[in-house]
Design a protein around this nucleic acid. Structure first.
Length: 973
RNA sequence: GCCCGGAUGGCGGAAUUGGUAGACGCAGCAGACUCAAAAUCUGCCGUUCGCAAGGAUGUGCAGGUUCGAUUCCUGUUCCGGGCACCA
């Protein structure tokens, strides 16, 4: 008997006792680094979606080990984060305590699955021994600047030297006060002035930025805590507020981040997403005179060719000019609009196109080429942070501009002739320009250069490369995160001395925000005020701080003198395979790439891309189940209260059928239950149905387990449950019919009662079955709804494998006989398939290949060690427990974890003929067995003599015969 | 809205480079074994016409390229993920 639970318990213990997964930093073997994305240990526990990626990476790690690599496969916790703090606010429990508890649960659940993690390397971002180095790296960023000549980070001291000896002088042209200065001027600056200048170059810097400010809660909110302009908790208004924030100057690395994508093996779509995020565009900054010319409006555009189609200008509402140029008559309208915009989130501002809003400033700009007056508007769809915060609107070419023009009755100039139909914008670059002065008759994409040249000549435009990406906000007004190693001396930021790291997160009793939107740390006056002049930074770092470099710490996790030893980093080098979800495409992945590049520039590591290959795992969605509650029941003279007072649930089919029979069936059933005699048959009964989520664990397929359902919540105990066949399941009675639930695919979440706990499945089928089933579900990269229906099949497969060794009645059946050719052929076919599929992460097809193999060996009655032993090794990455047991029973003493992956031999596959599919006009009609070395002529002859083919040709001559050797034959008639 | 994915039987999926659509598994049906059940084994299983042989049709939808399209191109619908303070 295959006693999976005893086997798995035994081997998990055995591997723990023998340190089977401990990895050395010192090995003659080639290294391989397999990493999972850092999990946040949520309090909700694992559901079946979480382990998907971990199983995929575990299979690969184990496979590489069998292939002779020294494999690093660590796991740890990104244990700072908002949920723990939120929980602390609600319950008063310290995040450190709840986090610890969550990690314990998480670990227990992971252990059940039988992963090969080297737990001696576990790291936690909230551990001071870890965040000491997060702070240390932050200081490296703080003490560095990006040199535009060398295009890399350099120590800020070099910049200070340069300023002190050469100043900051213009390359050509005049000195601009505030931007340029001489060495003498620099040396005469006060410390504050000097530091302010340096702050503009530091890679980690502070500046003012907008946050979501909720006055009523006295706190800053995350984007996902703001819904439609009000706070998620309590529904209080949220507005933008400027606060001093820390940032990482990721924009300086935009080009390097783009170039780096060429060197890594990420999916095209992932690269595409990062490219779009960085959003590099080449365009022109054009100056327009405003009014009679005292002021200039700068706009950024990638389409200077459309300059004659500009019908209005749009400023971001927060643009500096808004205030200055608004005419007295428009003041009221503008300030009203500004008030409205303040309440809008950035996402809302750009996403909602149906609602067109804006306000006219009353001012006009002048088109430099034809002198036309162009009205200047402000509108929320233009963001201050991108480009110059102002655009020239060309309604015939841009749909948003077009909609805006229509809505505010701004006349539209057509510069593309017939290509513009007056009903919608046409963003083409191929049209011939008209109404366009000196550009008339030129194709738009050619006109871009012509217009640009002319603008440069007139000194009103210059080429400009723009990036959509902005510097990364790096501070949070929160408690549960890394404190900044920054103190303010007389208001000037100063790095904390390295020797004083870590700046330990102080204990608090109260997690509520500090004054003026500061974080909770601001309440700890003793901690903040080191002395009268010296005060601590009270912000903390965001979630991505610790996760931007954790892959380096795993290499040397207990190092107390460095974030990791350089030699050890050189050995492990890049992460060879990184497994995680696409939801991290532009956040975590870009930040860790940035940190890696900076560490590389500073000579601390020898590679500038952290992840060589990225494997994206799809989401496992939940498959929710619903019961249907009857309400708003109306049926002539029935007292609706009789219905409303009882919880009546209809099986899915009942109310679906009811639309066909004027609800008569429902009427009959309900009236019978309630013991009502309807006298008025004229009135059609009507009712509404509200679906209620029901726990998927009490539904078998779509059949509700009524007993379990009644016990689930008190209000369901007495529910009247109307079954699919129209009968009623009364409380406490046995019923023969079934209640059919509705089904919908949604995100897997506790609140939707559609989570499935892996522990339950592992308990029932074992970890090996669970692992293989998760892989069997479909391609790792694809999202799919969870359904446990098929798990039996995988479990049967493992039992069948076991029976190749041990028969339930006969006992041991494996033997030492010589294997037959057929069995060897099956084995080697499988070796090839498993190796290929594992290499390309096609685990679902690998699992079916195992099934096919075991089916065929069973048919061949093959029980010999010669075939079975290599098969066990193949299966080790997928189902490590069962193979370890059988391996031992075969008498092996060395661990199967370190066995050698069997070698495929082609000699079992020499074939001389093939069954060719033969098609006529592309439709497959028959197959013919033909020798593999037959020539085209021979094949044609054989094909044309075939009875089926003759019949189908029906005396028509073959026009052409296509023969692809080893593939197919197609006859064209 | 913008960016990125996805859509194939009753269900999860396979078809690796344009070449026999539906491997493998689930569910279902029929049968064997059994006193019975479980377990196991055998056969059938896209739709449709047909007793059968066989035919027609079929990879979200509408077109196109090709001797041949699930695969390439154009358009379109629906679903999922991301959009900068959730991690």
């Amino acid at each position: 008997m295959y006693d999976f639970s005893a086997i798995e318990k035994f081997w998990q213990k055995e591997w723990q006792n023998t340190n089977a997964y401990k990895v050395s930093n010192d090995s003659a073997k080639p290294k391989f680094y397999v990493l999972d994305m850092f999990p946040y240990p949520s309090g909700k526990g694992l559901h079946v979606g979480h382990p998907l990626g971990y199983i995929a990476s575990d299979i690969f790690a184990r496979y590489k080990r069998l292939k002779g690599f020294n494999v690093l496969h660590p796991m740890g916790y990104d244990s700072f984060g908002l949920p723990a703090e939120q929980y602390a606010l609600e319950t008063g429990q310290h995040p450190a305590v709840t986090t610890e508890k969550n990690i314990e649960t998480f670990r227990k659940q992971l252990d059940n699955v039988g992963f090969s993690f080297d737990w001696s390397r576990e790291v936690r971002t909230s551990d001071p021994k870890y965040y000491k180095w997060t702070q240390w790296i932050f200081l490296q960023l703080y003490n560095s600047y990006f040199c535009h000549t060398q295009k890399k980070a350099l120590p800020i001291s070099k910049l200070v030297n340069k300023y002190a000896t050469n100043g900051a002088m213009p390359k050509n042209g005049e000195m601009i006060p505030g931007k340029h200065f001489t060495a003498d001027q620099w040396n005469a600056y006060t410390e504050k002035e000097q530091q302010d200048i340096l702050m503009k170059r530091r890679l980690a810097f502070s500046a003012y930025g907008e946050v979501n400010w909720c006055e009523a809660l006295g706190t800053v909110l995350a984007n996902d805590e703001v819904i439609n302009g009000v706070s998620e908790r309590g529904g209080h208004p949220v507005v933008k507020k400027k606060m001093r924030q820390w940032y990482l100057r990721i924009t300086e690395y935009a080009d390097r981040l783009l170039e780096g994508l060429e060197t890594v093996d990420f999916s095209d779509s992932m690269k595409e997403m990062q490219k779009n995020w960085i959003g590099k565009s080449e365009g022109v900054e054009i100056q327009f005179a405003i009014g009679n010319g005292q002021q200039q409006l700068k706009v950024y555009t990638t389409r200077p060719d459309t300059i004659f189609g500009v019908d209005f200008m749009v400023l971001a509402p927060e643009h500096d000019l808004t205030d200055q140029i608004t005419t007295p008559g428009q003041k009221e309208a503008i300030s009203k609009y500004l008030e409205y915009v303040k309440s809008r989130s950035e996402r809302e501002r750009v996403a909602e196109v149906k609602q067109i809003t804006g306000a006219f400033t009353g001012a006009y700009a002048t088109n430099p080429f034809d002198g036309r007056k162009i009205p200047i508007w402000i509108a929320e769809y233009v963001l201050a942070g991108y480009g110059t915060g102002a655009i020239m609107a060309v309604p015939c070419g841009d749909q948003r501009d077009f909609n805006f023009a229509r809505h505010f009755n701004i006349p539209i100039t057509n510069i593309i002739g017939e290509r513009f139909n007056g009903e919608e914008a046409n963003p083409t670059k191929d049209a011939l320009l008209s109404n366009s002065g000196f550009l008339d008759g030129i194709i738009m994409k050619d006109a871009i250069g012509v217009a640009l040249q002319q603008m440069e000549k007139l000194g009103i435009g210059k080429r400009k490369v723009n990036y959509k990406m902005r510097d990364a906000g790096f501070s949070r007004q929160r408690y549960w995160g890394e404190p900044f190693p920054i103190v303010y001396k007389n208001g000037i930021a100063n790095a904390v001395d390295e020797k004083e790291l870590p700046v330990v997160l102080p204990h608090v009793e109260n997690y509520s925000p500090g004054p003026d939107g500061q974080g909770p740390l601001a309440n700890l006056t003793e901690w903040v005020n080191i002395s009268d002049e010296v005060k601590r930074e009270t912000n903390t770092m965001p979630g991505y701080a610790g996760s931007s470099w954790y892959f380096l710490r795993y290499m040397d996790p207990h190092n107390a003198t460095a974030f990791a030893d350089k030699k050890i980093i050189d050995y492990w080098n890049q992460v060879d395979v990184y497994v995680g979800g696409t939801e991290h495409a532009v956040g975590h992945l870009l930040y860790s790439r940035l940190w890696t590049k900076v560490l590389f520039d500073l000579g601390l590591i020898n590679f500038d891309e952290p992840f060589k290959k990225l494997l994206n795992q799809g989401m496992i969605q939940g498959s929710s189940r619903f019961v249907y509650r009857l309400n708003n029941y109306e049926s002539g003279d029935v007292d609706t209260n009789l219905v409303e007072n009882r919880l009546i649930l209809l099986s899915k089919g009942i109310f679906e059928r009811s639309s066909n029979d004027d609800n008569k069936e429902v009427l009959a059933i309900v009236n019978k239950i309630l013991n009502i005699k309807t006298t008025n048959t004229e009135i059609k009964p009507s009712f509404a149905i509200s679906p209620l989520h029901v726990d998927v664990n009490m539904v078998d397929g779509v059949n509700l387990n009524i007993d379990a359902f009644r016990k689930w919540k008190p209000e369901f105990k007495e529910a009247v449950i109307i079954l699919e066949d129209g009968s009623v399941a009364e409380p406490g009675e046995e019923s023969s019919g079934s209640y059919i639930c509705g089904v919908e695919v949604e995100k897997m979440s506790k609140s939707k009662y559609n989570t499935v706990n892996p522990d339950v499945l592992i308990e029932k089928y074992g970890a090996d079955t669970f692992r293989m089933y998760e892989m069997f579900l479909g391609p790792v990269e694809q999202s799919k709804p969870w359904d446990a229906k098929g798990i039996e099949g995988v479990h049967r497969f493992l039992r069948k494998l076991w029976r190749l060794f041990y028969d339930d009645t006969k006992g041991k059946v494996w033997n030492e006989e010589k294997a037959g050719d057929a069995a060897l052929k099956v084995l080697h076919k499988t070796i090839k398939k498993i190796e290929e599929d594992t290499e390309r992460f096609s685990y679902n097809t690998a699992v079916s290949a195992f099934m096919v193999c075991v089916n065929e060996l069973a048919d061949l009655k093959c029980n010999t060690r010669e075939v079975l032993q290599p098969l066990l090794i193949l299966l080790t990455p997928y189902a490590p427990h069962i193979v370890a047991e059988l391996w031992k029973r075969l008498g092996n003493t060395v661990s199967i974890l370190d066995a050698t992956f069997p070698k495929y031999e082609s000699k079992y596959f020499v074939e001389s003929e093939k069954e060719y599919p033969v098609s006529i006009n592309g439709k497959m009609r028959t197959t013919i067995i033909i020798s593999l070395d037959a020539s085209q002529d021979e094949v044609e002859k054989i094909a044309l003599e075939n009875e089926v083919i003759i019949k189908w040709l029906d005396n028509k001559p073959a026009k052409k015969i296509i023969f692809v050797k080893g593939k197919m034959v197609n006859i064209v008639v």
